[in-house]
Design a protein around this nucleic acid. Structure first.
Lengths: 130, 130
DNA sequence: GAAACCGCTATACTTTAGGAAACCACTATA
DNA sequence: TATAGTGGTTTCCTAAAGTATAGCGGTTTC
C-alpha cells in the first residue's frame, strides 16, 4: 500500500518555488499593463506607424469606438502611446507609439510567432475552418 | 476562430493596413488562449517542473482554488498542460506542461524581460514603492 | 442639400472574469 | 480527538469588459 510518503518522494518540495516567485512579479507587472483583448492588437497596429482613430478601428475587427477610446487612454497613461493633435480644420488626431512603446515589439514578435504555430495546429486539428 | 476580412475599400490609403491585418490574426489567436490574469503565470510556474494543485496555488498569490481549477481545465483543453493522476491513497495529482506547452517559454521570456524593465520604470517614476 | 466622413461621447444593457467563503471525502500528524 | 493537508466543487456576488445604438459639431464630397 502506498501512502503520502511515496508521493512526497515523487513530488519533493520544490526548490524552484522561491525562484519562481521572483520571476512571477515582473510577469505580473507586464500583464497588468498589457492584458486584455485589445491592447496588444492596438500596439501591433500602431507598430506600423502612426494612425488615426478610425483607421485603427477599421483595422481591428470588432473593436468599438467606446472600447478603443478607453484603451487608448490606458495606453497613453502608461506612456506607451502618444496622442498628437494637429491644428487643422477640423482638428486631426493621430496616435503613435512612444519610444517606450516600441520596446514591446520583441514581445509582440514572439506572440505572433507562437500564434501562427498555434493557428496551424488548431486548423490541422479541426480539419480546416475558414 | 473567426475569419478576418480586411476591407480594402474602406482603407485604401494605407499600404500597411493589409499587412497589419495579416499579423493581427495570429496575435488574436494567441490572445484567445493566453489572455487573462492567470494563465501565463500558471504556465510560468509549471515551467519549473510539474506541480500539484495546492503548490501552484501557494506560489501564485491571490489565486483562488476556483479560478485555478478553471484555468487548469482551459489549459488542458488547449493541450498546454497535462493532468496526471497517480494511484496512491489518496490519489495524488500533478500538472505538467506538455511539449506543446513548453513552446510558450520564449514568449514568457520576453514577457518577463519587458516586465522587469517596466517594473523599474514604474518604481523610478513613483519614487520607490515597495 | 443629402450623405458620409472625422473623433469621439453617452446611455443602457448583457456577459464574463474573478473574488470570498464554505464545504466535501479523504489521510496524516500530534 | 483535533488539526491540517490533499484536490478540488458550490454558491453567491461584484466589477470590469464588451455590445449596441445613437448623437454631436464640424467638414468635405456628390
Amino acid at each position: 500500500m502506498e501512502t503520502y510518503e511515496y508521493d512526497k518522494r515523487k513530488c519533493p518540495t520544490h526548490a524552484s518555488g522561491e525562484q519562481c516567485a521572483k520571476l512571477l512579479f515582473p510577469v505580473k507587472d507586464a500583464l497588468d499593463v498589457l492584458s486584455g483583448k485589445w491592447k496588444l492588437q492596438i500596439i501591433l497596429s500602431l507598430s506600423f506607424g502612426k494612425k488615426r482613430f478610425k483607421q485603427i478601428q477599421r483595422e481591428i475587427p470588432g473593436l468599438t469606438p467606446k472600447v478603443l477610446s478607453k484603451e487608448l487612454k490606458d495606453l497613453e497613461m502608461n506612456e506607451l502611446v502618444e496622442r498628437h493633435v494637429y491644428d487643422t480644420l477640423p482638428v486631426s488626431i493621430e496616435y503613435e507609439l512612444t519610444n517606450y512603446g516600441t520596446t514591446i515589439k520583441p514581445l509582440l514578435g514572439e506572440l505572433h510567432k507562437w500564434g501562427s504555430k498555434h493557428r496551424k495546429r488548431i486548423i490541422a486539428r479541426n480539419g480546416r475552418k475558414n
